[in-house]
Computed example of a mutant assay.
Amino acid sequence: MANLRAGLIGLGMMGRHHARVLGSLDGVDLVAVADPGGDRFGVGGDRLLVSSVTELIEQGIEYCTVAVPTAFHEDVALELAEAGVHALIEKPLAHDVPSSERIAEAFEKKGLIGGVGHIERYNAALQQARARVANGDLGEIFQVATRRQGPFPGRIADVGVVKDLGTHDIDLTAWVTQQQYLSVSAQTAYKSGREHEDLVAVVGRLSGGAMTNHLVNWLSPLKERTTVLIGEKGAFVADTLTADLTFYANGSVETTWDEISRFRGVSEGNVVRYAYAKPEPLRVEHENFRDALLGAEADIVSMRQGLATVRVVEACIESASTNQVVKV
């Protein structure tokens, strides 16, 4: 069976990583790359370098990874859909809900496979958490709390921290819990002199009754990527920087010390840090998209799921501007 013919448009900070993985992915030939600004990182090697998605399509590609700035997602995606080319589009799917809807509808109309690059889903810590939550290891989920903070990345210019970093936490929360957002309340701040927000705090309610809160910023010298899931049997702490998952069990040992035994909540039990394989999330993402194209079992972030995340993001921005709780 011949390898899939792949293209890549966008050769910036994220695009160069896509090029590295696509260039070494079994069953795939990266036949051409595109960027109107050229290949400044030299990631294309000896592959054909063109300047537009039109020229990429002319190379007979079967699918394309889109890593251009968010503002250009719609134009690129719609041209790929019209040409019958499957696409994996970096998150967020598009800069707003109407654009995201048009992209999803275009791919559905053509019967094409479209995916969104929410890479955190493929982090081993969250893959483990998702499987263990589905297995009932935490019982009912009460709360999901995420912290995603660090210095400002110079590569981001066209969106704020909600649409860039915040989309990770919104998507992973819905995916790990298998619950949808019902409402959000958010506050944002503008501290770095840019037109877009660089700090957000979000409180949300999920369809299964769980509460969620997200603290996201580009203002901290400390880089942190932490997800805490609290349930009736204990808590999971996922660190996606190290891909570690730790389980804090509720205690089951009777407390005889009077002063402590008056406490009516849970107590501390065993603590376990799980051992498992930790493959590169970006490679796992591409492997799943390749398998989906080949008709094999795969777990991709569909465009409809990507659209749902954009809806929540816009609800967060609306909430911050109106100072009200917004239903999703």
Rank of each mutant, 00 (worst) to 15 (best):
G193A: 10
G193P: 03
E195N: 13
H196I: 04
H196M: 01
H196A: 07
D198G: 05
L199W: 15
V200A: 11
A201V: 11
A201R: 12
V203M: 15
R205W: 10
L206Y: 06
S207P: 02
G208L: 10
G208Q: 11
H214R: 01
V216F: 01
N217I: 00
N217P: 05
N217F: 01
P221L: 04
L222F: 13
R225A: 15
V228T: 12
V228D: 03
V228Q: 05
L229M: 12
L229E: 02
I230Q: 12
E232M: 08
E232R: 08
F236I: 01
V237Y: 01
D239Q: 08
T240D: 13
A243F: 05
L245F: 06
F247R: 13
Y248A: 10
Y248T: 05
A249T: 02
A249F: 00
N250K: 06
N250G: 15
G251V: 03
E254T: 14
T255R: 13
T256E: 07
D258W: 10
D258P: 12
E259C: 07
I260N: 04
R262S: 00
F263G: 01
S267P: 02
E268G: 09
G269Y: 02
R273L: 07
Y274R: 01
A277M: 07
P279D: 08
L282S: 08
R283Y: 02
R283H: 08
R283P: 00
E285D: 13
E285N: 04
H286C: 15
H286G: 07
E287D: 14
E287M: 10
N288F: 12
A292C: 10
L293I: 11
E297F: 04
E297T: 06
I300V: 12
V301K: 00
S302W: 01
M303N: 05
R304K: 03
T309R: 00
V310S: 09
R311N: 04
R311A: 02
R311E: 02
V312F: 14
V312H: 10
V312A: 08
V313E: 11
A320S: 15
S321Y: 03
